[in-house]
Amino acid sequence: MSQDGQPKSYTRTVYMCCAMTFGMLGLSYASVPLYDWFCRVTGYAGTTQRAEDTTGTVLDRKIVVRFDANTSNNLAWDFKPFEREITVRIGEKSQTHYVAKNIGSSPSFGTASFNVSPQQAGPYFSKIECFCFTEQELAAGEKVDMPVIFFVDPDIVNDPLLKDLGAITLSYTFFPDEDAEQKVTDRSKVGDESNSKL
């Protein structure tokens, strides 16, 4: 009886181990989008909100919005805000932009992450248009304008932790795309193949 039961026990163990392995693999792939979703819903770590448009309510109260720009040491870009700060009315749709220039000698790819400080203001800072989390490609010497359209949600005045808040800082950091070199290499191979066919 124990000999008959042993193969079933081994088979069950193998199935369970396989299921756990695939489950953990699936979770590892899902962890980034799940974390991103969690941050967007809760405003955790100063994550801003996405919006199609403003709420329609504009208050008389004003707030200063500061803009910060950072670039990884591994990305040869000059990246900065067009203006360091602006004063806006709470609830009002506002626009600014950042400027990025590839100061390297070859094309390169970058992706920006962002955060808002203080972190508690993240759920109230809503972006209508933004270049974050979108891969940007710049040719050598190319310069681009990157707009940001946003508003500060009027509900911020009802938050007891932020009732006296006078300024919010929106900060972006550009990182190199990990597959950038491969993309440039693949593109040049396609170009070489096209030229050889001619």
Rank of each mutant, 00 (worst) to 15 (best):
M1D: 07
Q3H: 11
Q6T: 14
K8M: 06
Y10A: 03
Y10C: 09
R12F: 05
T13Q: 12
M16Y: 13
M20F: 13
G23S: 05
G23K: 00
G23M: 00
M24T: 10
S28M: 07
S28H: 03
S31W: 02
V32T: 09
P33F: 00
P33S: 06
Y35D: 10
D36C: 01
W37S: 01
F38I: 05
F38G: 00
F38D: 03
C39A: 08
C39D: 01
V41Q: 15
T42R: 03
Y44G: 02
G46F: 02
T48H: 15
T48I: 05
E52T: 14
D53P: 00
T55C: 08
T55A: 12
G56L: 09
T57I: 15
T57C: 08
V58E: 08
D60L: 10
D60S: 14
R61G: 06
K62D: 15
I63R: 01
V64F: 04
F67N: 02
D68K: 08
N70A: 13
N70F: 11
N70I: 11
T71D: 01
S72V: 07
N73Q: 10
L75N: 00
A76M: 06
A76R: 03
A76T: 06
W77R: 09
W77N: 05
F79C: 10
K80V: 11
F82M: 08
F82P: 00
R84P: 01
I86N: 10
T87P: 02
T87W: 07
V88I: 15
V88D: 04
I90S: 11
K93S: 11
Q95S: 15
Q95W: 03
H97R: 11
H97C: 12
H97K: 08
V99R: 09
K101H: 06
K101N: 11
N102Y: 07
G104H: 10
S105R: 04
T111L: 12
A112M: 11
S113F: 09
F114T: 09
V116G: 02
V116Y: 00
S117I: 10
P118K: 13
Q119G: 06
G122R: 04
G122A: 12
S126M: 10
K127S: 02
K127V: 07
C130A: 14
C132F: 03
C132M: 07
F133C: 11
F133K: 13
T134A: 03
T134R: 08
E137R: 12
L138N: 03
A139F: 09
M146D: 02
P147W: 14
I149C: 05
I149Q: 05
F150R: 04
F151A: 07
F151V: 09
D153T: 02
D155W: 02
D155Q: 09
V157W: 03
N158A: 07
D159A: 03
D159Q: 02
L161A: 12
L161D: 09
L162N: 05
G166P: 14
T169E: 12
S171M: 13
P176T: 09
D177Y: 01
D177W: 01
E178Y: 04
E178H: 06
D179H: 12
D179K: 13
D179I: 13
A180L: 02
V184E: 07
D186W: 15
R187A: 15
R187H: 14
S188C: 09
S188A: 13
K189R: 13
K189I: 14
D192A: 15
D192S: 14
E193P: 02
S194C: 11
S194G: 06
N195D: 14
K197D: 11
K197A: 13
